[in-house]
Computed example of a mutant assay.
Amino acid sequence: MKRLLVAGAQGGIGAACVNAARAAGAQVFEADRDTYDVTVSAGADAAVARAAEALNGLDCIVHAVGMSGRRLGDGPVDECSDEAWHEVHRVDLDSVFYLLRAGLRQLSGSGGSIVVIGSALASTLDEDFLTAAYASAKGALVPLVRSAAFTGAPKGVRVNIVAAGLVDTPMAARAMTDPAIQDRMPRLMPLGARACSPDEIADTALWLLSDASSRTTGAVVPVDGGWHLR
């Protein structure tokens, strides 16, 4: 890992990826909605092109863009609002497609690694986390990333997902401050009975970007304290 683009660089997980990569000696190009809006095709294309120009090439990409739609009405299927459904899919799914497409076009020929930050909610259900828009958007990342990995493999491009559990970031403030959810942590995340830190997600992302994972592609790597075992 030498030259890295981080989309969503100002978020909790994105910022942790930026800091960890720089500490490991990487050159990092930061993109966020204030600079490059990857939820639209042109923004994703521009972010990749500008990163490659600024860094004199590109080796790796992290997609750490995401949102919770609860304030817009995300919830169980029979309660989820139209606004939440469309906005969450635009931010959490469309942006991945656009960045993967631009990333594959850039890295094909030179090779590289792309990591998408996903969620344990893509494959698990829980009464406190019934979010139809968010869960379906994160769930759709799995076939999308596998398809990108299949396309990229002959060209030397690896694509993987880090499936995060509850992470102590501002986006998770509701769960982090809800006493009832905190009391359930030993059952939700039995490995340590606590939320993950952004640094723990970043450490796994960096492993997937590095040569240490050179034979890994199309994988969903859980970093969720055991949530997926439920």
Rank of each mutant, 00 (worst) to 15 (best):
V18P: 01
A135D: 11
A193G: 12
V96I: 13
A120C: 12
D74P: 03
L191R: 14
L125E: 13
G43I: 01
T217Y: 08
T177R: 14
D45V: 09
G156V: 07
H89I: 13
L209I: 03
L99P: 02
D37C: 04
D126L: 04
S210T: 05
A163T: 10
G165Y: 01
H63N: 10
A7G: 00
G192H: 10
G112V: 06
M171C: 09
V221S: 13
M176F: 04
L5F: 11
A133N: 04
E53D: 14
F29V: 08
D168M: 10
D211M: 00
H89A: 14
A42T: 13
G66F: 01
P154E: 13
A44D: 00
V142A: 06
G25N: 12
D34Y: 14
E30R: 15
R158D: 00
D211C: 00
G152S: 10
A20M: 00
A193I: 05
N160P: 02
A163R: 07
S147P: 04
Y36T: 04
V96P: 08
L144K: 01
N160D: 07
G11W: 02
R158S: 01
A205H: 03
S214A: 13
H63L: 03
S68T: 07
D183K: 12
V159F: 05
S113P: 04
A148M: 07
A7I: 00
E79F: 09
Q182L: 09
P143R: 05
A64V: 03
L229R: 08
A84R: 07
F150C: 11
